Amino acid sequence: SEEWVEIALRLLELGREANINGTILNLHKEEIEELIRRLLKRI
């Protein structure tokens, strides 16, 4: 399964939302940290 691709796409999506909203992603901080942890486990 290409889970890391899904994770990377989700991170990009959150990054785009952050640019549009001008936020520092506090809302998504925990989700982002969890996604990155899952991503690093696969490398």
Rank of each mutant, 00 (worst) to 15 (best):
T23S: 11
N19Q: 12
I32N: 00
E34N: 09
T23L: 12
E33C: 15
L11W: 08
G15A: 14
L14D: 02
L27P: 05
I36C: 09
N21P: 03
R16W: 06
N26M: 10
L39R: 00
L12H: 04
A18P: 03
L11G: 00
L11A: 01
L11F: 03
L35T: 01
L14V: 03
I43Y: 08
E3F: 15
L12V: 04
L35D: 01
L27A: 13
I43R: 01
L35S: 00
N21G: 11
L40T: 02
E6V: 09
I32Y: 03
R37M: 08
E13Q: 04
R10W: 14
I43S: 01
N19R: 07
E33K: 06
L9S: 03
E6Y: 08
E34L: 09
W4L: 11
E13A: 08
R10Q: 04
L9Q: 02
L25S: 12
E34H: 09
A18L: 12
I43F: 04
L40W: 09
L40M: 06
L39D: 00
L9V: 03
L12N: 01
R42T: 14
G22P: 15
W4V: 06
L25Y: 04
L25A: 06
N21V: 14
W4Y: 06
E31K: 07
I7V: 05
L40K: 00
E13W: 12
L11E: 00
G22D: 10
L35G: 02
K41F: 07
A18S: 07
V5T: 04
G22R: 03
E34D: 12
G22V: 10
N21Y: 06
E2M: 11
I43C: 15
N26Y: 13
R37V: 07
R16S: 08
V5F: 06
R37F: 10
L9R: 09
W4R: 01
I36P: 00
I24L: 06
T23I: 12
E13I: 11
E31G: 05
K29G: 05
E6R: 08
T23Y: 13
L14Q: 02
S1G: 10
I24H: 07
V5N: 03
E3K: 10
E2L: 14
L12W: 11
E17S: 04
R10F: 12
G15E: 02
G22L: 14
L40Q: 01
K41N: 09
T23R: 01
T23H: 12
R16Q: 05
G15P: 04
A8G: 05
A8D: 00
W4K: 00
S1C: 14
V5H: 08
R16M: 06
N19G: 10
L25G: 08
T23P: 13
T23V: 10
E33L: 13
I36Q: 00
K41T: 04
G15L: 15
S1N: 06
I20V: 13
E13K: 03
L27G: 07
E17F: 10
L40E: 02
I43V: 02
S1V: 15
V5G: 04
E13S: 05
I24M: 06
E30P: 04
L14H: 01
L25I: 11
G15V: 14
I7E: 02
L14Y: 04
K29E: 08
A18D: 04
L12A: 03
R42A: 15
N21E: 06
K29N: 11
N19L: 15
L27H: 12
L39K: 00
R42H: 14
I7P: 00
H28R: 06
R42Y: 15
N26G: 07
R16V: 13
N26H: 12
G15D: 02
N21R: 11
E13V: 07
L25D: 10
L11P: 00
G15F: 15
L25R: 03
I36E: 00
A18F: 10
A8E: 05
E17A: 09
L39P: 00
K29H: 13
A8F: 13
H28T: 08
I32F: 08
R10S: 04
N19C: 14
E30L: 08
L25F: 06
I43M: 05
R37Y: 10
E2G: 13
L39I: 09
I20F: 09
L11T: 01
R38F: 12
W4F: 07
H28W: 14
E31C: 15
I20S: 10
I7M: 03
L14F: 05
N26P: 11
N19T: 11
R10K: 06
E33Y: 11
L12G: 03
E34V: 07
V5K: 05
H28A: 09
R38G: 05
E6Q: 10
G15I: 15
G15C: 15
E31V: 10
E2K: 11
H28F: 11
R10V: 15
R42S: 15
E33P: 02
G22S: 09
I36Y: 05
W4I: 12
A8Y: 11
I43Q: 02
I36N: 00
I24W: 09
A18W: 08
A18I: 14
R37P: 00
E33H: 10
E13L: 12
E34T: 12
E13P: 02
L14R: 01
I43H: 05
K41L: 05
R42Q: 13
L12M: 04
I20N: 11
R16E: 03
I7F: 04
E13H: 07
E30G: 07
L35I: 03
E6I: 10
L9D: 02
E34S: 08
K29L: 15
R37W: 13
L27M: 11
E6P: 03
I32M: 07
E30K: 08
E31R: 04
N21Q: 04
E3M: 11
H28Q: 08
T23F: 15
E6T: 06
N19E: 07
S1E: 07
I20G: 07
V5E: 02
R38H: 05
S1I: 13
E31H: 07
A18Y: 13
L25M: 06
L9I: 06
R37C: 07
E33W: 14
E6K: 07
L12K: 02
T23A: 06
I20L: 09
R42G: 11
R42W: 15
